[in-house]
Amino acid sequence: MTHMLTDLSRQSLAGLRLLLVMTVLTGVLYPAAVWAAGQGFGDRADGSPVRVDGQVVGSRLLGQQFEGQEWFMSRPSVNDYDTLASAPSNLGPLSPDLVASIEQRRSEVAAREGVDESEVPADAVTASGSGLDPQVSVAYANLQAPRVARANGLPLGDVEDLIADATTGRGFGFLGEPAVNVLELNVALAAAARGGD
């Protein structure tokens, strides 16, 4: 027993020294090397910031909260797009609370867009996995187009073109889902609305 304990403490000391060496290698040099290599990809390593008139107004990867008739709306978020509290709702598949919120969101979206409830797509009534989903489905963007065009005094066709520009297809043509980036769309929309004044 004493022998085992002596052996354990001797081995632990070697382990401590190895841990310190590995901390320098994998905990300092490695992330620094990735940072250095990452500088070759423009501002992606810094969170893909979006600028308007030189001011950072967000990241193209992080969703934002929009209210008001003139904007395209993001998906529901349980944290109101607070990036210091990324989270899903964690409500279960049979949760009566979740079913009730889905039904409430459905009637709100249908009323806001002036469409039948059956036309509201699933992403418009469900909260995302991060609470920071930067995108909506093409169907949800198109559903909002007539209202946004009216509120900004733009022809519907122009707004639909902006949606097409902000749409990312599937990776390699088949990975993931096509989706529309809401911040990029709204930045382009604001520019178009200003240009039309």
């Binding site: 990735v34 810094d46 969170g47 934002q64």
Partner: peptide, 26 residues
Amino acid sequence: VAGGVVQSFSDLTMQTLAGHSQVLTG
């Protein structure tokens, strides 16, 4: 990183397009 994953050593607080405050977490 090439695909957009962050590798930086600072946060940035800014105003969003709609005027909310948001932290660009690094």
